[in-house]
Computed example of a mutant assay.
Amino acid sequence: MRCVGTVVRGIRTPIIKENDDLATIVVDSLMNAKESEGFEFKDKDVVAITEAVVGISEGNYVTVDDVAKDLQEKFPSKSIGVVNPILSRNRFSIVLKGIARGMDKIVLQTTFPADEVGNGILDEEILAESDFHLGSVISEDDYKETFGSWIHPFTGINMIDFYRELIESEDCEVEFVFSNDVKTILDYSKDVLTCDIHTRGKTVALLKDLGANVYGLHQILTEPVDGSGFNPQYGLLGSNKATEEKLKLFPKTGDKLVKEVQKRLIDITGKQIEVMVYGDGAFKDPVGKIWELADPVVSPAHTDGLIGTPNEIKLKYVSDNKFADLRGDELKEAIKEEIRNKDKDLTGQMITEGTTPRVLTDLIGSLCDLTSGSGDKGTPVVFIQGYFDNLAND
C-alpha cells in the first residue's frame, strides 16, 4: 500500500543569465536531482519553471527610457492621469519612474484602503472613525491630515511619500487623489494610463466609452522601442525591477520552452511528463492581506496535459453521508470504489462540494510559488509527483 501522495521538490539549478540555454539547464538539473535523490520519473509528473528565469534567459528587458519614450508617443500632451497602480517597489516603482520621466505632470489615483493586490495605503480603523467611506473621493491634503502618518507594518514605508519622491526626482509634477471609482480620474485628465491587472479590460473599455484617450499597462511595450524587449500580450504587466534603470518583462517564449523541455524529458524517460511556466501563485495572505497574484496570469505557458480543472469527489462528504455506517478498511475500500466509478465530469454534483473550483495551472502554480519562494532558495524549477493521483491509486 502506498503511504505517500503528492511529493514536491524544489530543484536547484545554476544561476541563470541572459542567453543561457534554459531547456538544457532544466533537463540537466532534473537528471542531477534524480541521481542525487534516487527518485524515478512517472507518467503525469509535472515540471514547473518560474517565469523569472524564463524572462532572464530571453533577455526580455526594457529600460526606464524605453518606457518613457513609448508613453510619450501615446500621450503627446505629457500630462496624464494614472489610475489603480499597485503599491510595490519591486513591481511598480521602476514602471512609475518611466512614466514620470516621460511626462510633465501626473495625477495619480489610487484605490483605498488597499491596492488591487492588498497592499495597504491607510489605517482602516482611522477610516472607519473618519468622515470618509469607500465611496468617498479623498484629496491629497485630506489624506495627509487624516492618514498621512501611516506606514506599512511589513515594509516600514508610506508608499505615497515614496511614490511622490520618486516622481519628483524625475522633474515631474504629481498630484494624488484617492478614489475607488476609476471615473474620478476624468475630472483631472482625459489622457489616462490604467494600471490595474485583473480588471484591465473592463477599466480601459469604460474610460474609452467616456471619451478618454486611454491605454493600459498591458498596451505599453507590446513592441520593441529602439531594440528593447517587449511582450506582445501583456506589455508591462508582470514586469519586475531588475535594476534602478531596467525592468524584466513577463516572458514571451514560454510556449516554445515547455514543449522543448517536455520533448526532451519524454525522450529520456519514456514517461508523459507535463511542463509549465509559473509566476505568482493565486493565494491571499490572511495576515498581511496580500493577494499574491500581481502577474496577469499564474501560468503564461503550459503543455496540454495541464488544461482543465480537478475532477475530484470530497472524501469527507462521502464518508459522512453515503458511507456513514462504515469504518476502517471497509470504509477505505468503499471510498476507493467510489473514486474508481466517479463520473468523468462531476460539475454541479453535491459530491464535489468543498473541493477547490480552480483551474489546474492556478492550483499547481500556487503550489510551485510557495515551494520556490521569492528569495534565496535557489530552486527556480519545481518537480511534482503524484499530483494527479488519488486514494484509489495503489
Rank of each mutant, 00 (worst) to 15 (best):
K97Y: 01
K97C: 00
K97I: 01
G98M: 02
G98A: 05
I99T: 02
I99M: 08
A100E: 02
R101S: 11
R101K: 15
R101E: 12
R101H: 08
G102R: 05
G102E: 05
M103F: 04
D104L: 01
D104C: 01
D104F: 00
K105W: 02
K105D: 08
K105C: 02
K105S: 14
I106D: 04
I106H: 04
I106C: 08
I106W: 03
V107E: 03
V107L: 04
V107Y: 13
V107T: 15
L108T: 01
Q109V: 09
Q109L: 11
Q109R: 08
T110I: 11
T110P: 00
T111Q: 11
T111K: 10
T111F: 06
F112K: 09
F112H: 10
F112S: 08
F112R: 08
D115N: 12
D115I: 06
E116R: 03
E116D: 09
V117K: 07
V117N: 14
G118F: 05
G118Q: 09
G118D: 09
N119T: 14
N119K: 12
G120L: 13
G120D: 02
G120Q: 12
I121C: 13
L122T: 07
L122Q: 08
D123R: 09
D123F: 11
D123Y: 10
E124K: 14
E124G: 00
E125T: 14
E125L: 13
I126E: 13
L127P: 08
L127V: 07
L127N: 07
L127Y: 11
L127M: 13
A128Q: 15
A128I: 00
A128C: 05
A128Y: 13
A128D: 15
